[in-house]
Amino acid sequence: MLHTVNKSPFERNTLKSCLAHVKPGSAVLLIEDGVYAALAGTVASDMVQQAMAEVSVYALGPDLDARGVANRVIDGVKVIDYAGFVDLVIEHPSTQSWL
């Protein structure tokens, strides 16, 4: 299953709730303000890095670029574009948007 998260981890518990419900082998895609969770050196980085042991974490590149944070992404978080987003949706039988 693909999970998308579009909220900053500093403002909402959306990512935390999502990560509590992901199963090993699923994917989490950070989009919009959700991309702030993809950054190294924040209070949310540990939570994301721990999740990366069991799930693949992706971040939407255009959203990172827009926010000027593309050079701070945690090692191992895969940066993709909208075409990559489409591929992830196809790859997984269902998508859950954590809003």
Binding site: M1, A20, K23, S26, P93, S94, Q96
Partner: peptide, 18 residues
Amino acid sequence: SRAEMADLMAEQDVVLSF
């Protein structure tokens, strides 16, 4: 539980979130 909820979510064809 969270684990049960995760299982339920994973078995869906369509998830509409609000």
